[in-house]
Design a protein around this nucleic acid. Structure first.
Length: 297
DNA sequence: CGGGACTCCTGCCAGC
DNA sequence: TGCTGGCAGGAGTCCC
């Protein structure tokens, strides 16, 4: 589920339930996700109060009251579910919440279960286990292995045509691949790259360097910056995209998938006004790309 | 070094 | 109906 808009949505859903609360129990139900959990992970979380949440790229950072950070990444199939009983759920947004129950967190792929002092339970579920959790001093946020090499946030001011012109100068890799590379722009994933390229009328196969005019910004780059921002902002407003709901969440699901122009629309007509093209699927660095060959050049 | 293939893991679905 | 192969929102690592 998770690219930037989905992670942002998840974080916003977690905030009212977590911030200001203290972790009273932590159950780590297996040794690892993608990587091993930290040593004595549960002990490090128990007794800590969550001071605030932040999103960096596709990571959720929970800052704790002992100046440490609990980091989470949802991988492909990770999700958090908040279990709240009637009393304490009343003041929380309806989003993402399930009624409290005795078997909360007992599912086959429920790997981490936290109980908070407000009687809320937070369950992390991840069938494929491509997710990540870690815990480290807050002072290490900048240097942390997973965070140190991330590029700029696409919704921040740093993303502009000049940035693309500088970073993409001389880059031969296909534009699609470079936009997916988190060391340039952090937070984009397969869906929103496809969608932003469609809106910009740019082919995923063109060389990245074509958005750079000997290091100077281009109109195409300017357009792409706009469409990236628009896609992400619209998706956040829609609560992200929900592609499968086998976890059967009770809460609201995102709806941006209903507005996809190209993603998962192979062989369907191009949405662009006046374009008679058909959406095509191709594989770039092992991943599906959807685009309209007729209007994306 | 840049670029691409491979890898982790489970579930689902189309096609036979 | 049941099996098989392909594919899935990510990204670190390895190899050329």
């Amino acid at each position: 589920m998770p690219e930037l808009p989905e992670v942002e949505t998840v974080m916003r859903g977690l905030e009212p339930a977590l911030v200001g609360q203290t972790i009273v129990e932590a159950e780590i139900r297996r040794p690892n996700l993608r990587f091993p959990f930290p040593e004595r992970f549960a002990d490090k979380l128990i007794g800590r109060t969550i001071v605030r949440l932040e999103r960096r790229a596709k990571y959720i950072l929970a800052f704790l009251d002992d100046d440490t950070v609990w980091l989470s990444h949802l991988g492909m199939t990770g999700r958090f579910t908040v279990f709240a009983d009637g009393e304490n759920s009343r003041n929380l947004a309806e989003f993402y919440f399930q009624p409290g129950s005795e078997d909360a967190g007992q599912g086959k792929h429920d790997h981490v279960v936290l109980s908070l002092n407000n009687r809320i339970k937070i369950v992390y579920t991840d069938p494929r286990r491509f997710g990540v959790m870690d815990h480290f001093p807050a002072s290490d946020v900048v240097s942390h292995k997973l965070l140190a090499n991330l590029g700029i946030e696409p919704l921040g001011n740093e993303l502009n045509a000049a940035y693309l012109a500088e970073k993409f100068l001389g880059k031969k890799a296909p534009l699609k691949a470079t936009l997916l590379d988190q060391k340039y722009i952090a937070g984009l994933g397969n869906i929103y790259v496809c969608e932003a390229l469609f809106r910009a009328g740019l082919s995923p196969t063109r060389k990245s360097s074509t958005l750079s005019n000997r290091g100077k910004p281009t109109a195409k780059g300017e357009k792409l910056v706009q469409t990236i921002r628009a896609c992400l902002n619209e998706a956040i407003l829609a609560g992200g995209s929900t592609l499968s709901d086998y976890a059967d969440a009770n809460g609201n699901e995102g709806s941006f998938q209903q507005r996809f122009d190209v993603y998962d629309r192979e062989k369907l007509p191009c949405h662009k006004d006046g374009c008679t093209g058909t959406v095509k699927r191709l594989v770039q660095s092992g991943r599906s790309t959807f685009y309209c060959p007729k209007c994306q050049k």
